Simulated scan of single mutants.
Amino acid sequence: MALHQRAVLLFLLVILMLSGTALGPRSAHAATQAGTCQSFNVPVTLDNILSTPVTIYGELCNPAGGPSHTVQLLVPGGTYGHIYWNFPYQPQNYSYVQALTAAGYSTFNIDRIGTGRSSHPPIGLLTVSMGTNAYVVHQVVHALRNGNIGNHSFNRVLLVGHSLGSVTCWIEAGTYHDVDGVIITGLLHHLNATTLAGVVATLYPATLDQRFAYQLLNVNYAGYLTTEPGTRGKDFYYVPGTDPNVLQIDEATKETATPGEFASFAIPIADGISLQIDVPVLVAVGQKDALFCGLAATDCTSAATIQRAEAPFYSPKAQLQVAAIPEAGHDINLHKTAPLWLATARAWTSQHFAP
Rank of each mutant, 00 (worst) to 15 (best):
P205F: 04
G272V: 10
T194W: 07
Q210M: 12
E172P: 00
I273K: 03
Y237A: 13
K254A: 12
S274E: 11
Q276D: 13
T168P: 01
A201S: 15
Y204D: 12
R232L: 15
D271M: 05
H190W: 07
V182S: 00
T168S: 12
F236M: 10
R232P: 02
L247N: 05
Y224H: 13
Y224R: 06
A197W: 08
Q248H: 12
P268L: 00
S166K: 02
N245W: 03
A257R: 04
S163L: 04
P259G: 06
T227C: 14
A252I: 07
S274F: 00
G233F: 09
P240A: 10
S264R: 01
L282K: 02
V219E: 12
H190C: 03
A193S: 14
G181I: 01
Y214A: 14
L191Q: 12
F262E: 01
D178M: 02
T202K: 09
I249F: 07
Y238M: 12
S163P: 04
Q215P: 05
Y224E: 08
F262C: 03
L217E: 15
T227I: 12
N192W: 00
Y224W: 12
G272Q: 09
T253M: 12
E261V: 02
T168K: 00
G198R: 11
A266K: 08
V279I: 10
N192F: 04
I267A: 08
L275H: 04
L247Y: 01
P229Q: 13
N218G: 15
I183N: 02
K254F: 04
T185C: 08
V167C: 03
Y214K: 15
D235P: 11
I273C: 03
L164G: 12
V283M: 13
H162Y: 09
A270E: 10
V182I: 10
V199R: 00
L196T: 10
L216Y: 15
A222T: 02
G223W: 03
I183M: 12
V182H: 03
R232E: 07
Y176Q: 02
D235T: 09
L164M: 15
A270M: 10
E255M: 11
T168F: 01
V219N: 10
E172W: 03
V179P: 02
Q276W: 01
L217I: 06
V281E: 03
Q276L: 13
P244K: 11
A266E: 09
N245C: 03
L225C: 07
T195P: 06
G233P: 06
V239L: 15
H177I: 08
V179M: 00
K254P: 01
K254Q: 14
K254E: 06
T207H: 05
E228A: 15
H190L: 01
Q215I: 10
T168Q: 10
Q248T: 13
L203E: 02
V246F: 07
V283Q: 09
I267M: 01
F265G: 00
W170H: 11
N218M: 09
L196F: 14
Y176K: 05
L164E: 14
G174K: 00
L217W: 13
T258R: 03
F265S: 00
V182W: 02
A197D: 13
D209Y: 07
K234D: 11
C169E: 11
G272S: 08
A197K: 13
A252S: 15
Y221W: 13
T256A: 00
L275V: 00
Y238T: 09
N220I: 06
L275W: 00
G230C: 10
P205I: 07
A173S: 14
V219C: 07
N192L: 06
